[in-house]
């Protein structure tokens, strides 16, 4: 049986913890709204880029190094995680998904990591870490550009033959799913609409080839950018849930301990009264 003093200290420390988790929960809640807005704002761009790529595919533009399928000798995984923990199994799930992807791809897999937690967890993995970027400190547009450029350059230089992007898809505030998507080579034929020749009369300026050459890097860049936004929104959502649970759990523990504490105190008082009464009885006798 813990003493009254021990119980009191424990409740006090729990209350402090609860204060912190509650604050983190509120911060995550506020930031998730902003992250969601940013995600929504990026959606029209995604639609427009996809549209244009499809038109190009329909127009017969299929010739670009970024589209080139080749024999995969060195696969690569581009993994996005958070910089910080305390968001439940968010980072671990992403890392596990990345490891699964790498396992199927083969032991030659090179890792490109965005986010500190991924690096910490994969430092001792058998795969080579080709590059690492911290998440914080750089605006996402810039970070996305840097990551996309590095990965594309390595792909074009033949250092890697296939790049899978593992990031978190923001399904809802409750559900975030680690999702592997193939980033390179770009599969532009996807969703190409077969249309009658009369409809399919796009003109391209200066010509299909240069439009494609300009659009593809943008497409890769934007895909990375969007994945960054979704991963961040997911991180906040995961943290919101984790911290909300932590706050609730702390609350429950505090309630339980307070009950034990009160009982212990009551027991001590009862004991003292009994002693006094017992003493008085003894004196009477």
């Amino acid at each position: 049986m813990p003493t009254l003093r021990q119980l009191r200290d424990r409740v006090k420390s729990l209350k402090n913890t609860q204060q912190i988790t509650r604050a983190m929960k509120m911060v995550a809640g506020a930031r998730i709204r902003r992250a969601e807005l940013a995600m929504k704002a990026a959606r029209p761009y995604a639609t427009a880029v996809g549209d244009m790529l499809r038109e190009l595919a329909n127009g017969g533009a299929k010739d670009h190094p970024l589209l080139q399928e080749r024999e995969v000798r060195t696969p690569a995984v581009l993994l996005m995680t958070a910089d910080k923990g305390l968001c439940g199994a968010f980072n671990s799930n992403l890392v596990r998904s990345a490891l699964n992807t790498a396992k199927t791809a083969g032991p030659q897999t090179r890792l490109y990591l965005v986010g500190l937690k991924g690096r910490v967890q994969l430092r001792k993995s058998p795969y080579e870490i080709a590059e690492y970027w911290p998440l914080l400190g750089t605006p996402f547009a810039e970070l996305g550009r840097a990551v996309a450029r590095k990965v594309s350059d390595d792909f074009l230089a033949g250092l890697v033959d296939d790049v899978t992007l593992v990031s978190s898809r923001f399904v809802s505030t409750i559900v975030q799913r680690p999702t592997p998507v193939r980033l390179l080579p770009v599969s532009s034929g996807e969703g190409a609409v077969r249309r009658s020749p009369t409809q399919n009369s796009y003109e391209f300026e200066p010509d299909t080839k240069s439009v494609l050459a300009a659009l593809l890097p943008k497409y890769v860049e934007f895909t990375v950018f969007q994945a960054l936004l979704e991963t961040q929104a997911s991180e906040f959502a995961a943290r919101l849930l984790a911290m909300s649970n932590a706050t609730d759990n702390a609350g429950k523990l505090i309630d339980d301990l307070t009950l034990v504490m009160n009982k212990t105190r009551q027991a001590a008082i009862t004991k003292e009264i009994l002693e006094i009464v017992g003493g008085a009885e003894a004196l009477k006798g």
């Binding site: 244009m52 038109e55 190009l56 127009g59 009369s201 796009y202 003109e203 391209f204 300026e205 200066p206 240069s210 439009v211 300009a214 659009l215």
Partner: peptide
């Protein structure tokens, strides 16, 4: 436009330009 300035009025032919 990538190949010179251009103007688009309603009913322009379908076109994709840099």
């Amino acid at each position: 436009g990538g190949a010179g300035d251009l103007a688009a009025l309603p009913n322009h032919a379908p076109m994709l330009t840099t």
